[in-house]
Amino acid sequence: MVVLEARQLTKRYAGLPAVSSVSFSIGEGDILGYLGPNGSGKSTTVKMLTGLLEPSTGHVLYRGRDINVDLPAYKRKLGYAPEEANLYSFLTGWEYLELVGTLREIDAKRLKAKADSMLNDFAMFPHRHSPISSYSKGMRQRIMLIAALMHDPDALILDEPFSGLDVSMALVFRQVIKLLAHSGKAIFFCSPVLEVVDKLCTHLVLLRQGAVVACGAIEDIRSKGMAPALEEAFLQLTERVDSDGLAANIVAAVQAPC
């Protein structure tokens, strides 16, 4: 069953399209990877999917229903972790989770049990009473991921979720995503790391200059690109970069006299 669907999503700023006619769907158990170079419109799409940004045209549907019909109900079922871990730095990690959990109307006792358990599993329990201003990037990312998962959402939207995580925690979280998908969640995530998308996703959307250039199951993408590796397919479909030439130019600029 389709959980989350984007239909012809378009967003214009001063007449210029940042995202143009993007359509895709995520079913139960699907992990959709949203891929594209910097500035291709990934974060704009994410904000429209979460209801934080109103599209110029197009719709976002949750289980067949436009999210704007009952946006609060949709947000209750949604877990979202943005790209930047913008958390209130004067709060401690625990206080932040308590804030989010209370706003999501999780029972206080269950909230404490859940938060303590997840803090422990994410290796954040000893730091839970330290202010977020003292956290490293990875620690903030972990708090944000806990906050996104705490209320057992139906749909997860993750914008570069592995950013800042160390290798072991990234492996753990990769497994978490797989298990959540296996239990029927619909997962959407943006990542610039091709290896992660390749290993994790069941479906893929490739974005270029705000428009979808390819979408579908991972294997179909590879075959369309007529290349065995996803990286080559990605480069063929999105950017043609003369990496050797660019590198030579950069070195020449560095070595130019001061």
Partner: peptide, 17 residues
């Protein structure tokens, strides 16, 4: 505001109406 860029959590979770 005490951290304006962090208010996305309120925008996401609170029913404005």
């Amino acid at each position: 505001p005490a951290g304006l860029t962090s208010n996305w959590i309120f925008r996401l979770t609170v029913d404005r109406a």
